[in-house]
Computed example of a mutant assay.
Amino acid sequence: MRNFKIALILPAIGLLAACSSVGPDKTRDRGNDSKHLSQLQAGIWVDPNGCDHWIIDDGVEGYLSARTDRYGKPVCSGVAPPTVATGDFKRGGGLADLL
């Protein structure tokens, strides 16, 4: 029984050791004209439940993130019908235009 427990614990420790805070910088665009994501124009995509998500499309890569308030609750503004994206998210620019 002891060997069985060790056989279960060792892979779990190995998996946890593989998790680290060091990794690729996911706040940067990796395209030809690499920029920080805060420098790109974001739009809003409304999911089927009616809640907003930030969306950025630079033509090669796309980014999507849930739009939340300061308390982490989803924002469901009704800016567009469900499953519709709005805003000029396919061109460069600043995120400040939408804030």
Results as ranks from 00 to 15, higher is better:
Met1Asp: 14
Met1Ile: 06
Arg2Asn: 10
Arg2Ile: 06
Asn3Gly: 13
Asn3Thr: 03
Phe4Gly: 08
Phe4Pro: 06
Phe4Met: 08
Ile6Arg: 14
Leu8Tyr: 04
Leu8Asn: 01
Leu8Asp: 02
Ile9Thr: 09
Ile9Phe: 11
Ile9Tyr: 00
Leu10Ile: 15
Leu10Glu: 02
Leu10Phe: 11
Pro11Val: 01
Gly14Asp: 07
Leu16Val: 13
Leu16Phe: 15
Leu16Thr: 15
Ala17Phe: 13
Ala18His: 06
Cys19Ala: 02
Cys19Arg: 08
Ser20Asp: 11
Ser21Trp: 07
Ser21Glu: 11
Ser21Met: 14
Val22Cys: 08
Thr27Ile: 07
Asp29Ala: 08
Arg30Lys: 14
Asn32Phe: 07
Asn32Glu: 12
Asp33Ser: 10
Ser38Tyr: 05
Ser38Cys: 02
Gln39Cys: 03
Gln39Thr: 01
Leu40Glu: 06
Gln41Ile: 01
Gly43Gln: 09
Ile44Leu: 14
Trp45Pro: 12
Pro48Glu: 02
Pro48Met: 05
Asn49Ile: 06
Gly50Ile: 11
Gly50Met: 12
His53Gly: 08
His53Lys: 05
Trp54Val: 02
Trp54Met: 03
Ile55Cys: 11
Ile55His: 12
Asp57Tyr: 04
Gly59Val: 08
Val60Lys: 15
Val60Gly: 06
Glu61Val: 03
Tyr63Met: 07
Leu64Arg: 15
Ser65Gln: 13
Ser65Lys: 07
Ser65Leu: 00
Thr68Asp: 05
Thr68Ser: 10
Asp69Ile: 05
Gly72Asp: 00
Pro74Leu: 01
Pro74Cys: 06
Val75Thr: 04
Cys76Tyr: 09
Cys76Ala: 10
Gly78His: 13
Gly78Ser: 07
Gly78Lys: 11
Pro82Met: 09
Pro82Lys: 08
Thr83Trp: 11
Thr83Gly: 03
Thr83Asn: 15
Thr83Ile: 12
Val84Phe: 14
Ala85Ile: 09
Ala85Val: 05
Ala85His: 02
Ala85Thr: 15
Thr86Arg: 04
Asp88Asn: 06
Phe89Asp: 05
Gly92Lys: 00
Gly92Val: 03
Gly93Val: 00
Gly94Gln: 04
Gly94Tyr: 02
Leu95Gly: 00
Leu95Met: 07
Leu95Asn: 05
Ala96Lys: 04
Asp97Ser: 08
Leu98Ser: 12
